[in-house]
């Protein structure tokens, strides 16, 4: 079905993968497709509240190109997806526990809450699942 939900498991802290997750999430959401993003492992660090782009994003050749070409910031794309479509974002409760963090350490207005992997995987049984 064209409007099957899209579930994105974002683990990597690489800029390129975070950017691709943001692009897929925002495009999917504005294309009338429900999207849920589960952020865990090193990806959590990229969502640290108030980080400057140079400390938020680490990557390779395309990371440098994205910055040089002033590509839309991944955090902005996620926010636009939430504003314009049906996009939910969840922070991995285990990753926050390991860091000793609460949700308020992450960017405002992005996350709908914390979630465990088991619940996310269970929900994702009804849609398309992508891991980055």
């Amino acid at each position: 079905m064209a409007n099957d939900p899209l579930y994105i498991l974002l683990c990597s802290g690489e800029h390129e993968k975070i950017q691709m997750a943001a692009m897929m999430a925002s495009v999917g959401a504005v294309s009338e497709r429900p999207v849920e993003v589960f952020v865990s492992m090193n990806a959590v660090l990229a969502f640290t509240k108030g980080s400057a782009p140079e400390e938020r994003y680490r990557g390779g050749t395309f990371s440098d190109l994205l910055k040089a070409k002033n590509a839309p910031d991944a955090m902005t794309l996620f926010r636009q997806g939430k504003e314009l479509g049906d996009l939910k974002m969840w922070a991995c409760s285990m990753a926050l526990d390991v860091q000793g963090w609460e949700l308020d350490r992450l960017e405002d207005d992005l996350f709908d809450g914390t979630l465990g992997l088991t619940k996310f995987l269970s929900d994702a049984e009804n849609g398309q699942f992508i891991t980055l």
Partner: peptide, 9 residues
């Protein structure tokens, strides 16, 4: 995204 936001308005 600007197009999509504008179309809503």
């Amino acid at each position: 995204m600007e197009l999509i936001a504008t179309l809503k308005l």
